[in-house]
Design a binder for these strands. Structure first.
Lengths: 234, 234
DNA sequence: ATTGATTGGGCTAGTGTCAGACCATTGATG
DNA sequence: CATCAATGGTCTGACACTAGCCCAATCAAT
């Protein structure tokens, strides 16, 4: 039964590593940037500094972080997303299992469509409209190294602007579950152009305040990604 | 930022109490039924028996459970959902905060609409169709005491049949967040009739394989509940 | 009445996690 | 060059949680 599932996913250390890995892989803290100071971060994550430091050390040893002491020191992100190639995709899928893959794609479709619809339905301030346009522009101007990160930022912005933190969390979770997959598929210019058009459509629908159109636009966009995945797998 | 939120909601004891309360309030284990044996349940919840027992004792002292020793003993649910009255509603809302309320309603709307659409889109086996009809019939035949529980079961069935365990979990979570509210609003015959019609529409759309209609039907249904809440609050 | 299986009740030793204090290093600033 | 603020590094005592074991109660089957 769904409700009598494990109370916690693992011990505090493991969960913390997972979280930091999320922040890094999703590009919340990009390459060269640093995590917040330990004391601060520990509070944000609701754990003790000791546990946080263990997690940081693990990521350091796995070459995700470079930790420097002293003032202006900190834990700097060294991880750069791998240049994608189709070769890895099957391995990534094998790692997560096809059932989980379908689950993740379905979940993502549901929550992101929902977030876009909610956002389009509500009134938007000028700042919010600007942010949305800014993120859209960022993706369009992005080079190959930054593309995934800024694409993620765009999608998460839609979720966060919806005003529902539960939805935003769900979208972040969903995105994370597919991020390894996305990183493994090659970026072809055709697909990038296609995505750009779809991103435009999403923003247009949201700014126009048309929930149905927004939902449809997101749906088509994500369906495109899913189709791409299936294409590389078959 | 969404991704650097607390790693754990509280200590194991608190989270366990919360979970068991979920199971009880959502009617996963109905009045008079008993929880699984401690050793078994502890494994399911991924916690030690000691911690589980503390949680059970807390619920026992709060009169949710009656614990009996010996063979054929166990932790029996004594909790019966309170007969609803509008008086409590304001207090419940005050407890959770209006921002959280809006968040919960939004989240629920997104995930349940998504689940219904997914379910309607996919092919359904005969058994699945039967289960759906069965749950619908259960709600319609339910007496006042069983109504909320069977209504929950109906909604959760839609989510679980969608085949996405992530979505099902999200729906259960969403339902839980509003369950206190639902329990606090009075059940008027008009509303029950209205809900019954909407439930029929949802099932019809799903069985017809029409995702758009299914989404719309769920949306109207939940919007009705939300409106009802607003009505009692204003 | 006896037995045996099932279940809750309780104990202990070991490990995980926490809060808080203090130390060590770094580099900008005066 | 000395200072100082910000930051990572380390230690300690307390508490939470776990695994595993054995005890106590209950009740159907014999």
């Amino acid at each position: 039964m769904t409700v009598l599932r494990p109370v916690r996913a693992g011990n505090a250390f493991e969960e913390t590593v997972e979280r930091l890995l999320q922040a890094i892989k999703l590009g919340v803290v990009g390459p060269g940037e640093k995590l917040p100071p330990e004391r601060e971060l520990a509070v944000q994550l609701g754990i003790s500094r000791v546990t946080l430091r263990e997690a940081i050390r693990a990521l350091q040893e796995a070459d995700y972080l470079d930790v420097r002491r002293g003032r202006y020191g900190g834990a700097f992100v060294t991880y750069v997303p791998p240049q994608p190639g189709t070769g890895d995709l099957r391995r990534v899928v094998a790692d997560m299992g096809t059932a989980d893959l379908a689950d993740a794609l379905t979940f993502r479709m549901a929550v992101e469509c929902g977030a876009a619809a909610v956002l389009a339905a509500g009134p938007l301030t000028g700042d919010q409209r600007d942010l949305l346009r800014r993120r859209l522009a960022d993706v369009n101007e992005a080079g190959a190294e930054d593309y995934r990160r800024l694409d993620t930022a765009f999608h998460l912005s839609v979720a966060e602007l919806s005003g529902s933190s539960l939805l935003a969390t769900a979208c972040a979770d969903a995105r994370l579950r597919v991020s390894d997959l996305l990183n493994a598929i090659p970026m072809l210019q055709v697909n990038l152009d296609h995505s750009a058009t779809q991103h435009e459509a999403i923003v247009a629908a949201i700014l126009a305040g048309d929930p149905e159109a927004a939902r449809r636009a997101v749906s088509e966009h994500l369906e495109g990604t899913a189709a791409l995945l299936r294409g590389f797998l078959s």
